[in-house]
Design a protein around this nucleic acid. Sequence first.
DNA 1: TCTCATCATATTGTCGACAATCAAAGGTGA
DNA 2: TCACCTTTGATTGTCGACAATATGATGAGA
Lengths: 246, 246
Amino acid sequence: MPQSQDTADAELGWIGIPEDAGPDENAIYEQIHLAIARQDLSPGTRLREDHLRRIFGVSRARIRNVLTRLAYAGVVTLEPNRGASVTKPSPKDAHDNFVARRAVEDAIVRIAAGHIGPADRALLTANIEAESKARHDGDTAGMVWLSGEFHMLLARITGNRILEGILRELITREALVISTFERPGRPSCSHDEHHAILEALCAGDADRASRLMLGHLGNVEDRLDLDPPKKPADLAEIFGRHPTRV
Amino acid sequence: MPQSQDTADAELGWIGIPEDAGPDENAIYEQIHLAIARQDLSPGTRLREDHLRRIFGVSRARIRNVLTRLAYAGVVTLEPNRGASVTKPSPKDAHDNFVARRAVEDAIVRIAAGHIGPADRALLTANIEAESKARHDGDTAGMVWLSGEFHMLLARITGNRILEGILRELITREALVISTFERPGRPSCSHDEHHAILEALCAGDADRASRLMLGHLGNVEDRLDLDPPKKPADLAEIFGRHPTRV
DNA sequence: TCTCATCATATTGTCGACAATCAAAGGTGA
DNA sequence: TCACCTTTGATTGTCGACAATATGATGAGA
């Protein structure tokens, strides 16, 4: 499949990955992680070691180490002797991820309701405005990312690094879920919901904030199309293109 | 500090780590992870690459990879140019871990209340009995391990691999927390609590199971001594030994 | 024309050697 | 006797080369 390979490489080439990220291993990890979280790298994209090595200007060993860690985080899938690719979540993965997220976000929002300060409020408000702008500009990837950032900001308010780390993984995986299962032409519309959650938090009403958060997450999930495994699409496309010939 | 080094090495040598684990990387990972979860390796123990290499009979590169993954899981701490050691959690880490655990376990127990079947019940009952036996035998490490397994069984009942994975990490870190902060001569006494949780689950009473679970986790936390950073103890010991001389 | 076996290429897996760094021991001077 | 500098040994960090494996192409046979 030379074609899909090339597209994947192209995808790696232009965006997200800067010309010369330092030799710092963590930096490389963050770069790739961010590229996936921002949907610059779509599920299924192969991540060839030699290619990454040239992009980042480091030895293969280091790339390999980074890929190992990304695989542990669940955003990259490592197949023996087949290499690494951006994880393509199954419908069950998607569902499980949502369930776990509800549990974690519920806890976070309840803690945050007691911790939120003026500085936090400013950050959250700014985020909501940025997302609003992204929607206005039609930047859907930016919207998904900013939406995730809103939730990460909430996690940071709690001061609990463990919850924060867990949520980070869940949100990154959700970016993969969304780009795999999104219904075309169905924009996410979480703007008012984020705002309502913020208000409840500022009012110190943990129960209401929790209710709003769970409803919000439910809406995001409902907006997806989890039933079909999606992408035996390739075959369907081919059949559609060449009705009965060759 | 040659002495603490030697004890650490000895600790590595005899227990937990079998003579010849296969060259399978995952197997090595699991071996070390298990040894930490079972408290066979105590917090602060240095994990020298060359030493591990000889024990497992593989190349250093592989050991290095495993240590990277363990560090990501938070059970091993990697200091640049200083190597790896079993993570010694701070009091804050301990607290954060408990908070996160309450969130995750609450969700798990609520889901499990709707999913539990006869086979699950048998496994859980067997676990409770095994823990009872371990207590009777005075095998505290075994008790901690079996107690963790009880919670892992609950997670498995939910069928949610993501929640299961998250809990696994939290439980492993809790083993580190316990061996770092346990009050001497204060045995954990969760026997009846596990039993009560199981009963509530079998009755399908999610709310009661949740309440019991949260109380149970709270009890475990209360049993610890989180206030002192623990171990400037070394100095105290020295001062005690040599009252005013030299 | 189709199927199957064989081969060539590209990619990953594994290893050992060397360089860089750190911690402790030993030695020098005040 | 103490403090400080230098040296030595041990440990980790990094890399390049080679081996193993999978994928796609080629060609022979039915």
